[in-house]
């Protein structure tokens, strides 16, 4: 027998090739179409926003982990992903520093202060967006039109203003492709759906959350919408529902891990979104809906614990 040390591990001796890092980079890859679409529609400024946010997020992660003397794990891609989502949640007209501030807040306060990867109780990028919206309201609604970058309102804001004039509303087709005002990453439903289908195909995200989220929004908007505007399709394509349902609500850390819990979570997200959009103060409610459901996620999970195999009245 050769003199060679055998590695003795606890079973299983086979493990799936999927790693945390691979998951993170797959999600980043799935976001590329939407990010590319934002650069096409909003120009170089979109690229700068995204780059600044990503760099700030990674740098913050590095600095905080260094200060806290933790293991540096900026290469796992989670900080890059947070930065990318942060950048895609900004309006094109916002000043460039705002993404950096958001990323620093997202990583330092929402993620690392609560214990780092896997410990945050809210989606970092969304919490940062909510913070930015509260801190700099005017900068965070500086929407511009694609290509020519003229100040404009988002389709949802137009609908919210309550002018039942279909002429001022963008065409659904434009909203599908992304030719409307909005945050960088949320305008092109098409690009987001490509990413989403890829993620579901790769089994990185669970179809239950996007399906129940989008389904609830569609059904409720159809029921409560005024004809012409506020239709189900309009609310599905307008604003951040696609981005939120596919990339934000499905964040593992802040969503329930049980199958039943995921249905409830997705429906809750959709319900709060529509509540805010129809009867709330803001034209858009996706961020707040997801944040609220993030906080409820542990509770939902505890109420939807799976029934163990063989849980029946004992025979005999």
């Amino acid at each position: 027998m050769e003199e060679n040390k055998l590695i003795v591990l606890s079973a299983p001796h086979f493990k799936s090739p999927l790693t945390t890092k691979k998951i993170m980079f797959t999600v980043i890859l799935a976001l590329i179409p939407a990010a590319a679409a934002s650069v096409v529609f909003f120009g170089i400024k979109a690229l700068l926003h995204i780059l600044i946010s990503v760099v700030a997020a990674v740098a913050t992660e590095f600095v905080v982990q260094k200060l806290l003397k933790k293991k540096i794990n900026i290469t796992d891609g989670s900080a890059i992903l947070t930065g990318l989502l942060m950048g895609m949640n900004l309006p094109a007209g916002a000043p460039l520093w705002i993404g950096a501030v958001g990323s620093i807040f997202a990583i330092a306060v929402v993620k690392e202060a609560f214990g780092g990867l896997g410990q945050n109780f809210m989606n970092p990028a969304l919490a940062a967006r909510a913070m930015l919206l509260a801190a700099w309201p005017s900068q965070m609604v500086s929407w511009v039109t694609p290509i020519d970058a003229i100040a404009t309102a988002t389709p949802l804001a137009i609908a919210k203003a309550g002018v039942p004039d279909t002429a001022t509303l963008p065409l659904l087709w434009d909203m599908f492709i992304g030719f409307v005002g909005g945050s960088l990453g949320e305008t092109s439903a098409l690009a987001l759906m490509i990413g989403g289908i890829y993620l579901i195909y790769k089994e990185i995200i669970d179809y239950r959350i996007p399906l129940s989220f989008l389904g609830t929004v569609f059904v409720l908007a159809t029921i409560f919408g005024v004809d012409g505007i506020n239709s189900g399709l309009f609310h599905l394509l307008g604003g951040g529902v696609m981005l939120g349902a596919i990339f934000m609500a499905t964040d593992y850390v802040t969503s329930p891990s049980t199958a039943k819990g995921r249905w409830i979570y997705g429906i809750g997200c959709g319900l709060i979104t529509i509540l805010i959009r129809f009867w709330g103060g803001y034209p858009e409610g996706v961020s707040f809906a997801i944040l609220l459901m993030n906080i409820c996620a542990p509770l939902i999970e505890n109420y939807t614990l799976p029934t163990k195999f063989g849980k029946v009245a004992k025979v005999k």
Binding site: T19, T20, G118, Q119, D206, T254, T258, P306
Partner: peptide, 25 residues
């Protein structure tokens, strides 16, 4: 097949819950 892979924190992906034949967590 025997790679000493780096362990990260649990990211709460729920995969283990989905595959568990005993339906525990």
């Amino acid at each position: 097949h025997v790679k000493e892979e780096e362990m990260t924190e649990c990211i709460h992906c729920g995969q283990c819950v989905q595959v568990c034949p005993a339906r525990i967590m």
